Every structure is written in C-alpha cells, then in structure tokens.
Computed example of a mutant assay.
Amino acid sequence: MNKQTEEQLTHINPQGRARMVDVSEKKKTKREAVACASIYMKRNILERIERGDIHKGDVLSVAQVGGIMGAKKTADIIPMCHPIFMTGCDITFQMDYEKNKIDITATAKVVGETGIEMEALTAVTVAALTIYDMCKAIDKTMTISDIRLLRKIGGKSGEFNFEENKC
C-alpha cells in the first residue's frame, strides 16, 4: 500500500471504500476548534428571543445545552468520527438586528489523537436547529446557513484560520 499524501483522503481504504482512520499510533495533543453558524429570522422573532418571550422557554439557554449535547454525540451521527473525550465545549450567541440573525459560535477542546472540528461544527448546527425547533410555530421561514470551521489548533496539520475569522 502506498503511503497516503496530504492531498489523498484518509477515510478511503485500498479497495476505495470508506474506513475509520487508525489513530492508534498518533500522539495525544491539545486540540481546539471554533465553528460558527447563522440562523436568519423575522425581526420580531429575534426581539422575542431576546426578551424571553417564546412560549417554549429560554431559547438561547436551551440551544446552548442542545449544542453541547450534539457535540458530545458527534461520533454517533457522523459515520467515520472517532468517539472522543471532549475536555470542554462552549457556545456563544450574537444577536444581529441589522441582518435579522443570530450568529452561533462553538469552541470545542480535547487532548487526544484526533481532531475536534466535527464536534464544534455539530455543536453550532444542533444549536441552530434547536432555535428553529423552539420558534418554528411562529416563523417557519427561518434559514440556517454559513456553517463553517473558523479556527483549528493542534494535531499534525497544525493551525488553520478561516480567512474571515468570524461568523
């Protein structure tokens, strides 16, 4: 078998089928990933969320917990992700009244043999879906978009920063 280069996909076996990458020979390193997503909505929904006037409860608190729970379950829903022991996960929300959206940012951390990017991406996605779920009765036109990795630190590939390091 030829040694794979960085340009080749590591999740493909010699027969061309998907595989889970073997990380048993990798050293544990401190890793961190930051991801973001945006959810666009009608302005009155944004205002109601900020006032705490959504009948299902405190939308951002529930989305915070949902996002963290999603990050913890990433290996259960993304087929080739390794189960990892996250050492930390936090989610922040920024209300943007100019664009009628909420920007969601998640930071996930681990000391391990493999990255934490998928956990950060899952966290912002589940947080956005939680906001949608809690507000869909009054605004089904909400749009979730701009899900992306902003920053990654640690591991063999080193540091990565998205050109615009913000949502």
Results as ranks from 00 to 15, higher is better:
48 R>M: 11
166 K>N: 13
37 A>G: 07
28 K>A: 14
130 T>S: 08
47 E>K: 13
75 A>S: 14
114 T>Q: 08
93 F>G: 03
26 K>H: 07
34 V>N: 00
43 R>Q: 15
72 K>M: 08
39 I>P: 05
123 A>G: 09
151 R>H: 15
43 R>S: 13
10 T>M: 11
115 G>A: 09
40 Y>H: 15
91 I>L: 08
15 Q>G: 05
101 K>D: 02
114 T>R: 05
135 C>T: 11
93 F>W: 05
67 G>F: 02
132 Y>W: 14
156 K>Q: 14
138 I>S: 13
166 K>L: 10
73 K>Y: 01
35 A>Y: 00
1 M>P: 08
10 T>R: 09
119 E>L: 04
45 I>N: 03
78 I>Q: 04
106 A>P: 04
21 V>G: 09
33 A>L: 04
142 M>F: 10
20 M>D: 07
128 A>V: 02
29 T>Y: 09
4 Q>P: 13
127 A>N: 07
135 C>R: 02
151 R>E: 15
21 V>C: 10
94 Q>L: 14
59 V>P: 03
67 G>Q: 01
147 I>P: 00
75 A>G: 00
141 T>H: 10
2 N>W: 11
50 E>Q: 15
147 I>S: 01
146 D>S: 13
104 I>Q: 03
1 M>V: 09
97 Y>H: 15
57 G>P: 08
116 I>F: 12
66 G>C: 14
10 T>D: 06
158 G>I: 11
99 K>A: 13
39 I>R: 05
5 T>S: 12
120 A>I: 06
133 D>H: 08
37 A>I: 05
126 V>C: 01
117 E>G: 05
33 A>D: 06
80 M>G: 04
85 F>M: 14
135 C>A: 07
71 A>E: 07
10 T>I: 11
108 A>F: 09
75 A>I: 01
136 K>H: 04
41 M>R: 12
115 G>L: 05
78 I>K: 03
82 H>C: 07
145 S>V: 02
